[in-house]
Structures are given as structure tokens and as C-alpha cells.
Amino acid sequence: MSDLGAGFGYVMKGQRWVARRGRWFGFGLLPGLITLFVYAGALVGLGHGADDLVAWATPFADAWSSPWQALLRTALTALVFVLGLFLAVVTFTAVTLLVGQPFYESLSEEVDRGEGGEVPESGLSLWRELWISARDSVRVLLRVALYGIALFACGFIPVIGQTVVPALAFCVSGYFLAEELTAVALQRRGMVLKDRLVLLRGRRLLVLGFGVPLALAFLVPFAAVFLMPGAVAGATLLARDLTAPGTDAKPGGGPDARAAGDQPV
């Protein structure tokens, strides 16, 4: 359980890092602001249309008497919106990181520089960086979508669907959120997606301790925008420690493997 606390410690370290460097904090805000306006519109649309979607998906309940029809559809409407938020949290980071690739690469490099030691560089062009980031984000989102479908199906189970499922959704969201954030630093270290996932699986509780609090905080309106610079800084600190000499589960990668980008995932 100590790993959970240590993971949360990286969240706080990252926020303190940008708080002491106001220029980098402001620099890291820009991508999040752009993405926020797009996602706000999408969530408002989901809020207005979730009840119609549930009514269309549950025609068998049309003949149910009150209050059972209302209870079922209200619970499912809430679940749809929770799953929508779950997907928004994960995709928000992926899209923001893609939009802000040059911003966050520079911020992550500055963290490495400030902590001392080697400052890894990928040696790839910006367009190659963007392509690899976009491709890896799609692969991660496909995994998230599979979890989302399974969790949505489990949402029909009475009681469990309205209690355990949302909790699991936040754990999944937090785990993949941490993957997206650490990708900025780990990609510069030449690690392909397959190796990054192996590395993070070796320290699941640490990763959850970092990702779940951020996933919950990102649900607060506008919080994701203001927390993103510190989240990238904290993820870089986490990546540094995970790949430090002598740590467990450090997969091989290297710039050549990443540049090729052909490993199956």
C-alpha cells in the first residue's frame, strides 16, 4: 500500500515543481485551454442526450410500471454520463498531449534538466514525434474502449453496476491516464508503447496512486487545464525513478526501436 502513497507523492511533487516556475506553468496551460473548449461542448451534448439514448437502448422497459421504469432509466442515464466522463478524462489527456506535444516535450526536458543527470532526446523530427504519439494514443484508447464496453455491460447488474463499476472505471481511467502522461518522458527515453505498458504493470499500485487522484481531480470543471503542467512534471519525475538504474522491470527499448515503431502491441 505504500506505493499508493508514493504515487500520490509524485502528483504533489509535479504541482510544486510548476508552482515554483510560473513561466513553465503558463507555458503548459495553453494546450489544455484549447482542448477544454472542445470537450466542454461534447459533455454538454452528452448531458442533454443521455436520457434519449437510454430510452432508445431499453425498449423492453416501455411497458414497466412506475417507479421501476424511472429507476432503471435514471440509473442507466447516470451510468452513461459517468462512462462519458471516464472516456473524457482519458481522451482529454491524449488529445491535450497531442495538441501540446512541443509544449510538454520542452517542459519534460526542463524537469529532467533541473533534476540533474542526462536529459534524454529522441532525435526524431516533430512530425515523427506527433505521428508516434497519435498512433500510440489510438492504441491506448482502443484498450480503454474495450474496458468501457465491459464496464457498461456490467452496469446493468443491480447494485454492483451502480457502485463497483464506477469505482473500477476510475481505476482504469487513472491507470491509462498515468500511461499517457508518462509517455512524454518515456518516449524521449526510447521506449515504445509495449515496453511502457510492461514497465507500468510492474508497479501497478504506484501508477494507480499517481493516476487515480488526477482522474478524480480532472472531473472538477477546469481543473484538468490547471493541473496538466504539474501532471506532466510529476509524470516525468515518476518516469525518472521507474527507469533509474537498479529499479525493477525496466524493459529494453532504445531510440532505434522507438524510431522503427513496428513492435506489435
Rank of each mutant, 00 (worst) to 15 (best):
G28T: 05
G246L: 07
V265Q: 07
L197P: 00
F27W: 15
L208S: 06
I157W: 04
V38W: 13
G123T: 04
A249V: 08
L130W: 14
E121M: 04
A224N: 14
Q187T: 04
M12K: 14
L87W: 12
F92S: 10
E110C: 00
L4C: 07
L208R: 05
L107Q: 01
L124Q: 09
V212G: 03
V220P: 11
V172I: 15
V184K: 00
F218W: 13
W68Q: 14
A183R: 10
V232T: 09
A215Y: 04
T35Y: 11
L83N: 05
I160M: 08
V172P: 09
F25T: 03
T236V: 01
A235W: 02
A40Y: 04
M1H: 12
D241W: 00
L177K: 10
T74F: 04
E129W: 13
L72N: 06
V54E: 09
L168E: 07
V140R: 03
A185N: 04
A63I: 08
D241I: 00
R188C: 01
L208V: 07
M191Q: 09
W24Q: 05
A63G: 15
A178G: 12
R143N: 14
G22E: 06
V80I: 12
A169I: 11
F8K: 05
W68T: 08
Q263R: 12
L142N: 05
G28P: 09
F8P: 00
E105Y: 09
G123D: 03
V220A: 15
G32E: 10
I160A: 14
R23L: 11
Y147A: 10
Q69C: 08
R20Y: 10
G261F: 11
G246A: 07
G202P: 07
R73T: 09
A153R: 08
Q187E: 11
E110Y: 00
R16V: 06
E129V: 08
L242T: 02
D62E: 15
A55M: 12
A260V: 06
L206E: 01
G26P: 11
D248G: 08
P59K: 14
G47N: 10
A167I: 15
F92W: 12
L30M: 15
R73Q: 13
G161W: 04
S108P: 05
L193H: 09
V82C: 10
D112P: 00
G41S: 10
A231P: 13
P264C: 06
V54D: 08
S122G: 15
V82M: 10
F86Y: 15
G253L: 02
F170K: 02
A40H: 06
E121T: 09
D256K: 12
G261Q: 03
V165K: 04
G116W: 02
Y175A: 13
S125M: 08
A257F: 00
F25E: 02
V164S: 05
D256A: 10
A42I: 13
L193N: 06
L168C: 12
A249E: 03
L141P: 03
L76Q: 15
A239L: 01
A224E: 11
P31Q: 12
A259F: 07
L97K: 06
S108N: 04
A94C: 06
E110Q: 08
Y104Q: 02
V140F: 03
